[in-house]
């Protein structure tokens, strides 16, 4: 599979994503500069974490105007696979490729730690290999992960199976006690109606090697590979 990792000024997880895709999963992966307007030839685009343009304004608010975002939009509308991780998720929201908006964490502090997330649907290209749902242990690292969406839209999203991950206890209870940032209904990740665009706050690339404490993130990458009929 050929992955394109979109690099904005201020991205800081692009090297991590490249490392996991190339060195751990043996896939083709390369950077796509934010000024590029060509994303043809990629099977999947990754919008990595970081602080695009410093995020001095609302997170992702400037990055969405990068020339590359037009191409990303076209790619997504054409059914191409797009995953936004952390800042990448925030950019996808700003770009309108996913519904809802991001607010600051309720504690008003940056939070970096391992959390548990429950897989809410296996009917997406991103989770098809998560047999029987289950709980994944994956780190978060963000200041603005408090996902919000109007009640009506949320109901529709739920009905269409767009809620992909929820913060939960190690046993899988999505109780508010296990919500690190105040996001509505413990939401940690969502997809668009078609399922080809995913946004998630946890960093699967940080949980893809045993040395780093968890390999639960691999199931997301492997789902994409399986979806595209590629081999890890």
């Amino acid at each position: 599979m050929r992955f394109g990792i979109v690099m904005f000024p201020g991205s800081n997880c692009e090297q991590d994503c490249l490392h996991v895709l190339r060195d751990v999963l043996n896939q083709d992966a390369e950077y796509v500069w934010h000024q590029s307007s060509d994303v043809s030839g990629f099977d999947c685009l990754v919008l990595p974490g970081g602080f695009s343009y410093g995020d001095y304004l609302r997170t992702g608010a400037i990055a969405r105007f990068s020339p590359v975002m037009k191409a990303v939009e076209k790619f997504a509308i054409g059914g191409g696979l797009v995953i936004g991780i952390c800042n990448g998720f925030q950019i996808l929201l700003e770009a309108g490729l996913l519904p809802g908006a991001m607010m600051r964490n309720v504690g008003l502090k940056f939070i970096c730690r391992f959390v548990d997330i429950r897989v809410e649907t296996v009917n997406t290209p991103w989770t098809r290999s998560c047999a029987g749902g289950g709980v994944l242990e994956i780190p978060i690292a963000h200041n603005e992960g408090n996902y919000q969406v109007p009640a009506g839209t949320l109901e529709e999203m739920k009905r269409r199976g767009q809620i992909v991950f929820r913060y939960c206890s190690p046993e899988g209870s999505a109780h508010p006690d296990f919500n690190p940032n105040g996001s509505i209904e413990n939401i940690a990740g969502i997809c668009n109606q078609e399922g080809n665009v995913l946004g998630m706050m946890p960093h699967p690339e940080r949980a893809s090697e045993l040395e780093l404490g968890s390999t639960d993130g691999l199931v997301i990458w492997r789902s994409i590979l399986a979806h595209c009929g590629a081999r890890a």
């Binding site: 970096c112 780190p139 780093l212």
Partner: peptide, 26 residues
């Protein structure tokens, strides 16, 4: 240390809280 991103760059093989921080050289 939870306010600090202590995992980015994927080298932190011993997380904060132990005697020393250990980083792998990939």
């Amino acid at each position: 240390y939870e306010q600090y991103d202590h995992m980015v760059r994927l080298n932190t093989v011993v997380l904060p809280g132990s005697d020393a921080a250990v980083l792998r050289i990939k």
